[in-house]
Design a protein around this nucleic acid. Sequence first.
DNA 1: TATTGTTATACTCTATAACTATA
DNA 2: TATAGTTATAGAGTATAACAATA
Lengths: 168, 168
Amino acid sequence: MTTEADAANLDAPVARPGDLGWHLGMVLRAYQAAFDTAVEGMPGGIRGFQVLSTVIHKEPPNQQALGAHLGIDRTVLTYLLDSLVEAGVVARVPAPSDRRSRKIIPTREGHSTLQHYETRVATVESDLLAGLPPSDAQVLTALIGLLALNVHRKKPGTNPCEAMDHLP
Amino acid sequence: MTTEADAANLDAPVARPGDLGWHLGMVLRAYQAAFDTAVEGMPGGIRGFQVLSTVIHKEPPNQQALGAHLGIDRTVLTYLLDSLVEAGVVARVPAPSDRRSRKIIPTREGHSTLQHYETRVATVESDLLAGLPPSDAQVLTALIGLLALNVHRKKPGTNPCEAMDHLP
DNA sequence: TATTGTTATACTCTATAACTATA
DNA sequence: TATAGTTATAGAGTATAACAATA
């Protein structure tokens, strides 16, 4: 009864403390569930897709930058990359500048794999927003992106991915 | 609503498939980190706060409705409620209508506990949105709420919390 | 037979620390 | 000494199945 009216009423500010978290959790759970089916067969699942996407589109210089960008701990990333290397979508090559670090590069199969799953992920994302009027959906994605960037910049301490954030 | 759209730079649509998930994850991680410090000392942490808030503000008729509303499995909820009961903020009472189920009611200490942490959570939420222009923040919270409601309704199968959603 | 809540078990994810090889 | 990456271990979180009480 009143719930729908309340949520749709833009005059109302944040209804109650904690509601923002409830909303975010609700949306993210739905997104992850849909995402999970979209990347079925992808090695490493959602995380695997995100790693492959980052490797191809952002070209991080080493594993640490890659992990920092996705919020993945380096110890976790090792196993994740193992499965992606085994699947043949990426490869580890020694970084010429610093022989301690390794650069992750996509294979040709990695490119086609990403292309395949990106179409499915795009469908999922538009489906999730399908319940909103198109203009609202556009505003929402823009504002979330803005907020994410904002939050990302405010993040203190470990932030070795800045070099990556300014790439084209 | 289109006026705020200009402020958010709508020229850039959804940049790439998967970006929405990256943005959502980024925002949620920051939110959870801040939330976590805000509810320091609260039994059960974030989950404990959400349960107490739901119990007081929504008055779910039984544990299943409570868990469904928060996306918490009933087996997990049992342990979570154990700690909340032990902390003295809620109590389990037998539901008169159905002797299988139990209603969770807040104690007087539960009310004051929630009130204390709600002010801290409210601060955290406004801090998170502080980087955005106030009008944009308002639009964003409203749209996220709308999307959450949308997603919540589309959720198939297990949805025994509808009875709760229509309460005042 | 189906459902509510509880309990026990197992599995996954994550966090911590120790180790190597480079710097 | 500090850092990038790897490995091993332990902990938290989560899911699954079985159970008792009630519908």
